[in-house]
């Protein structure tokens, strides 16, 4: 029996009265890389942001159903507990958004909020996270420069470092390579493969090839519905649903 970290039951999301997600029932295995694929506008990002309750900061959002994280329904939680839910789920967005502060402070941001570390422990933790994402050697001499001066690829890795600094269990990645050049994109991909040993990684992507390269488990969304889900091997080599076959062969996109 596989170990599932996230499970949704009849998840429905409406934004401004438009149904974006319809009856989503999925299971996401722990410590594996799950790719959520599908054409743009099919609800991938919405699904991702429902996991850390980020949808609710927008107006007119209606969510029903259940999202079980480690067996507990996070939709039942009180508003005051939401920061703790989010701490458990790091988010990497499409375009990197470094916070308006220095490189060091970006990584230290979550640590300062959640832990009472002294200056030395903080510096060590920041260094560890930057090493994890392969950024340390590039920035160690300019830790106090504004983060906005980094290249986009470096910024994306910095965002990854910021996310893992608070020791989440899940990494929610929303097309993290789509704004990057091929080399930077490859670095991120490799990182995700490395990180999936310690974290449950959910990768939203609209490039099939990327999903093929990295995914252990695949969820195919189409017009807000789950068409097919399963292990990458089965999904790509033996798809059951005709729509999946059409998507894989490029007939629908």
């Amino acid at each position: 029996m596989e170990n599932y970290q996230i499970e949704t039951k009849n998840l429905n999301v409406q934004i401004q009265k438009n149904s974006i997600l319809k009856n989503i029932n999925i299971k996401i295995p722990a410590k594996q890389l799950t790719a959520v694929i599908g054409p743009s506008g099919c609800g991938k990002t919405t699904l991702l942001k429902s996991f850390n309750r980020l949808l609710e900061i927008q107006d007119e959002v209606n969510i029903s159903g259940q999202i079980l994280v480690d067996g507990e329904n996070i939709l039942d939680r009180k508003a005051s507990e939401i920061p703790d839910i989010r701490k458990k789920m790091g988010l990497i967005s499409q375009k990197p958004y470094p916070l308006p502060m220095s490189i060091f402070e970006n990584v230290a941001y979550g640590l300062r909020i959640h832990h009472n570390k002294n200056a030395k422990e903080l510096a060590e933790a920041v260094q560890y996270c930057l090493e994890e994402v392969g950024l340390w050697n590039e920035v160690k001499n300019r830790l106090h420069d504004p983060a906005s001066r980094l290249s986009v690829g470096q910024q994306q890795r910095l965002c990854l470092a910021r996310a893992i600094a608070v020791q989440p269990e899940v990494l929610l990645c929303d097309e993290p390579t789509s704004a990057l050049d091929p080399i930077a994109a490859q670095q991120i991909e490799k990182l995700l493969l490395k990180l999936k040993k310690e974290y449950t990684v959910i990768l939203v992507t609209h490039t099939l090839r990327q999903a093929k390269r990295v995914a252990d488990y695949v969820i195919f969304l189409y017009f807000g519905m789950v068409i097919e889900q399963g292990t990458a091997d089965e999904f790509f080599n033996n798809p059951k649903n005709p729509e999946t076959k059409a998507y894989l062969s490029g007939e629908i996109s």
Binding site: Q58, Q94, R162, A165
Partner: peptide, 14 residues
């Protein structure tokens, strides 16, 4: 941008 606020919220900031 909303994403900047999301970046902060998603590390568990209030």
């Amino acid at each position: 941008p909303l994403s900047l606020k999301e970046a902060s919220l998603s590390v568990g900031a209030t």
